[in-house]
């Protein structure tokens, strides 16, 4: 329970520190910002190493196996693992009795992972200027792979399926009323005109003059209306997030958290007031 209370105090302090930025840049905000950047960088680094590199790379190159069952190439291959185990016992473990060797998990061995391993090592060559150029191969691989992987997805979902969604009939439906039909046709026309004129705005090799200029202008109006709607959604989202933070601050203001929000808010206001009376010193903190 006491850990919970401490957590509540830290959360309330960091939330109020970030909010203090709305007043002006100050030591509380700076502290919260540096903690945020530092903690998250370490978190992502650790996560990438233990969730990605260890199980997905090392785990596939040297999956856990019974030492006595190794044969052929694997005998020599796992000798290399022995060397790595010597470097780090936690990353490259061997069971205490020495019978199980390899990265624990349910992976099966896949030696093609040696290629990503080599490309990864190439990235580290940046630290040695004379062979640093090798890292470009790794970058080229990532860029090329991404282009290929995305080409199909974009063409299918963002081009073909969107064309499918835009090709709509302009029709009079007997089941709808007169005004219902008018509304329906109007909606269809808005979609078709919006897509075509919007696409037209993004024609670069043609001068936007005369009729083309008008169509392009209609396109930009459509874009602006959609941006307006987006902006509305963004305001809605930001208010939702603010509500979430306030809800937590209200919770930390209760007696079970020893009125953390009130106490911290008071301390911060007083500190900021004192610092504001010494502007030169404050800016150097």
């Amino acid at each position: 329970m006491s850990v919970n209370i401490l957590g509540g105090w830290i959360a309330a302090f960091l939330t109020l520190s970030i909010f203090s930025y709305l007043y002006k840049d100050n030591p509380f905000y700076k502290m919260a910002e540096h903690i945020f950047v530092g903690v998250s960088a370490a978190y992502w680094g650790t996560l990438a190493f233990w969730n990605q590199i260890v199980p997905n790379l090392f785990g596939r190159l040297w999956p856990a196996a019974e030492y006595s069952s190794l044969e052929g190439f694997n005998v020599a291959w796992y000798k290399l693992y022995h060397g790595l185990h010597f470097l780090s016992r936690s990353i490259f473990p061997i069971s205490e009795d020495g019978t199980i060797i390899g990265i624990p998990g349910d992976q099966t061995q896949n030696l093609t992972y040696i290629f990503p391993f080599i490309l990864g090592v190439f990235m580290l060559f940046r630290l040695i200027p004379s062979i640093g150029w090798l890292s470009r191969w790794s970058l080229a691989y990532v860029v090329g792979l991404a282009a290929g992987l995305r080409m199909y997805g974009y063409m299918n979902s963002n081009v073909l399926a969107q064309m499918y969604g835009t090709i709509l009939p302009i029709e009079w439906l007997p089941e709808l009323s007169f005004f219902g039909n008018l509304g329906n046709i109007f909606n269809t026309l808005v979609i078709i005109v919006g897509v075509l004129s919007g696409l037209f705005y993004f024609f670069f090799s043609m001068e936007h003059k005369g009729v083309f200029g008008t169509v392009s202008r209609i396109g930009i109006y459509f874009l602006m209306v959609s941006f307006g709607a987006s902006f509305g959604f963004a305001v809605m989202g930001r208010i939702s997030l603010l509500i979430g933070r306030f809800n937590d601050l209200i919770e930390y203001a209760h007696s079970q958290y020893y009125f953390a929000t009130f106490i911290l808010l008071g301390v911060m206001i007083v500190t900021l007031y004192v610092l504001s009376r010494k502007p030169d010193e404050a800016s150097e903190v």
Binding site: S157, A161, Q162, G237
Partner: peptide, 17 residues
């Protein structure tokens, strides 16, 4: 989705995806 994403995702809803 978050509100901020809605306009990005809405075309897929419109197209029946």
């Amino acid at each position: 989705t978050t509100s901020i994403q809605v306009n990005e995702v809405l075309p897929y809803v419109q197209a029946g995806q």
